[in-house]
Simulated scan of single mutants.
Amino acid sequence: MSRFRSLTPRRKKNHTLRAVSAKAAWGRRVLILSGFVMACVVGYYLLPQATAGWTTIQHVSISGAKFMKRGEILSLLDLPPDATLWTVEASKLEERLQGHPWVASVSVGRAFPNTLAVVITEREPVAAFQHAGGKLFLDQEGVVLSIVSEEATAGLPVVSGLSAISLLQGDPSTRDRARLGVTVARVLRDKFHGLLHIDLENSNEVIAETKDVTFLVNQHIEQTWQQYLALEPTIQAGNPTAPYEIDLRYSDKVIVRQRG
């Protein structure tokens, strides 16, 4: 009995010590949490000021642009004078640039310190569209790129026979015809490297003229061209007299005729 009585004060002492230790631990947690909250508050107000020197946009790095001018790109970005790498929204800047007809794709990113990085993939001009008012660039999708000088279109296949207004307005059927013309030009350019003219005026056929040979083709050019390549050695062995015409509008035959 006396033994149990002697343990009671010890238990009370241990309980008291544990209570004191728990209060001290809780106090430390509160102190740490308070310090963390205060650090967050101070950081929220002071960090932007402390980092402003190396986040303020002082330079715009532009890569991939061959036809678009730097000033034109900066104008589209329309950055405010106090813009920083934290305040600009890359997605919105990309949307502004994506609306330009020359831009196929664009990426805007941050490059510390002080630099906004713009990477542009431009549409490639693959043909010159001839119309009454001059020439326009077309890309491989038949998209009109811009009005250009005579020098800039030198060497490109020339496409004609479409409505410039319909093409500029993005009319689907006109765009499809332009795309077909570009496809014909691409196929023939693999074989003929001189001046190439693609006439799209007739909706039932495409007339492709090289220096000595005129091709009559349609929307199945990529299939019928293989027929021509298979027969080309035989055709050349016959020594056709230039200028001559090759009709590839049929799926089962290739017609060669003298051009008057």
Rank of each mutant, 00 (worst) to 15 (best):
A128K: 11
E201K: 15
V118M: 10
G43Y: 00
T183P: 00
S63L: 09
R3E: 08
G161Y: 06
Q258C: 02
V37C: 14
M1G: 09
F137S: 07
Q236A: 06
Q258P: 02
D252Q: 14
F137V: 07
R189T: 08
D78Q: 15
Y228D: 01
D171Y: 02
Q223L: 14
Y244V: 10
F112V: 13
G133L: 09
H131R: 09
E245I: 13
F67K: 10
L168M: 12
G133Y: 01
V158Y: 00
A208V: 01
E209L: 13
L97E: 05
S146K: 14
I246C: 07
Q219A: 09
V206S: 05
G43L: 04
R10E: 10
S63Y: 03
G53Q: 12
A152I: 03
A128W: 06
V213D: 02
G170M: 14
G64R: 10
K135V: 09
T183N: 10
I235E: 01
G43F: 03
P240D: 08
V37F: 13
L167R: 09
T51D: 09
S6G: 08
R177D: 03
G71V: 06
K211D: 01
R96I: 06
G142V: 07
P125R: 11
P172W: 03
R10D: 07
D171S: 12
A50G: 00
S203Y: 02
T115H: 09
P233G: 03
P48Y: 02
A90C: 05
T51P: 08
L168D: 03
E89G: 05
L76R: 15
E72W: 06
S107L: 09
W225S: 09
T87I: 02
F215L: 09
N218L: 00
Y228W: 11
V20Y: 00
I57M: 05
S63I: 10
E151N: 15
R177T: 02
T153H: 05
R186E: 05
R28I: 12
H100I: 08
S173Q: 14
T16N: 12
D199G: 00
F137G: 04
L156K: 13
G194L: 03
E124W: 04
I120G: 00
A164F: 00
G142F: 05
S149A: 06
Q169M: 11
L17G: 00
Q169N: 14
A111M: 11
F112N: 06
L116S: 07
V254I: 14
A50V: 09
I62F: 06
L76M: 15
R186Y: 00
S91C: 02
Y228T: 04
L167D: 01
A65K: 07
V118F: 05
P157T: 06
L85P: 02
V144S: 08
A117I: 01
L168R: 11
P81S: 15
Q98D: 07
T51W: 11
T153F: 04
R96M: 07
L167G: 01
P9N: 04
G133E: 08
P172N: 07
G53V: 08
G43A: 11
R257K: 14
L76Q: 15
L196F: 06
V88T: 03
P81V: 12
S75K: 15
Q219L: 02
H100M: 10
R259A: 03
T174G: 04
Y45D: 06
I198L: 12
G109A: 14
L93F: 00
G260D: 12
L79M: 04
K211Q: 06
Q226R: 13
P101T: 05
T234E: 10
V159R: 13
V148A: 11
R10P: 01
W54A: 13
T84H: 11
